[in-house]
């Protein structure tokens, strides 16, 4: 622990001292530590992605789901019924009809490259950031739920009631649609998404555009399956073991 802290301190002081260097060459130095300077806009040179090895998820993703709830504060709606409660990520149990083979996997927004939810949204509230993260801009979401109709992964929820005490990093409110946003607040701060930190043995987060990133390397070597690959949405979330 102390070793990491001292590393971190050295790293930070180095960064502060060479602030000029950072601004001149942001990509080169910071890419590998997954952070951009806080006051610089995100760039489309990056495409964030996630790899989930479901064979290593001993709990089928329960820990990820708990971490997500804790991070974003969904799942304790007072009035909504079970069908109306928001769920950003869920554990899906799949049983193949003929063979009876079963598996469990966490399913959330797959962060499609060509996202149907973005196409159908009349106001542009359903949006894809330059770095590939798909999210809802709740400021301009009118709550028409067309994106929920369009999403092939059933990844979106509608907030059916007034909320209080939201997480500061995750504004959520009545009458808007929401979904997994790959923890943009954490990613922008150079952290991993909460679910990845909750199951580091099975999940990997990184830049799909950077061929030297871990995720790109393992995906190049072993591939990664998309759910409903037939729709050719080129998802940012890939799986092993499905």
């Amino acid at each position: 622990m102390s070793k990491i802290d001292s590393y971190r301190r050295n790293f930070l002081s180095g960064l502060a001292g060479t602030a000029a260097a950072v601004t001149i060459a942001p990509g080169v130095f910071l890419r590998e530590v997954q952070a951009k300077p806080a006051d610089e806009p995100i760039s489309d040179k990056v495409r964030w992605g996630m790899l989930i090895d479901i064979n290593k998820l001993s709990d089928g993703g329960d820990a990820c789901i708990e971490a997500c709830k804790k991070e974003h504060g969904w799942g304790d709606e007072k009035h909504s019924n079970d069908q109306q409660d928001a769920q950003w990520i869920r554990k899906v149990k799949v049983t193949e009809k003929m063979t009876g083979k079963t598996m469990s996997l966490p399913v959330m927004c797959q962060h499609c490259e060509t996202a149907p939810c973005v196409d159908v949204c009349p106001t542009g509230a359903s949006m894809k950031r330059a770095d590939g993260i798909v999210q809802v801009n709740k400021h301009i979401c009118i709550g028409c739920r067309y994106c929920m109709m369009a999403c092939p992964y059933k990844a979106r929820s509608f907030v059916h009631e007034t909320l209080v005490d939201q997480r500061p990093g995750t504004p959520r409110g009545k009458g808007t649609v929401e979904s997994c946003n790959m923890c943009v607040n954490r990613v922008d701060a150079g952290k991993n998404p909460a679910c990845v930190d909750a199951a580091p043995e099975a999940m990997l987060f990184g830049d799909l555009n950077d061929e030297n990133s871990q995720i790109s390397k393992v995906l190049k070597q072993y591939g990664g399956t998309q759910i409903r690959a037939d729709l050719e949405l080129n998802t940012g979330v890939r799986y092993w073991g499905i």
């Binding site: 990491i4 930070l12 502060a16 602030a19 590998e32 997954q34 806080a38 701060a189």
Partner: peptide, 25 residues
């Protein structure tokens, strides 16, 4: 070289601190 860099990736840090330092400057 890349291997060491890749592993350093997981040493995440609080960007707020960085931004504060930067804002001060």
């Amino acid at each position: 070289e890349i291997a060491t860099l890749s592993l350093a990736k997981n040493v995440t840090f609080d960007t707020n601190e960085v931004s504060d330092v930067k804002t001060d400057q």
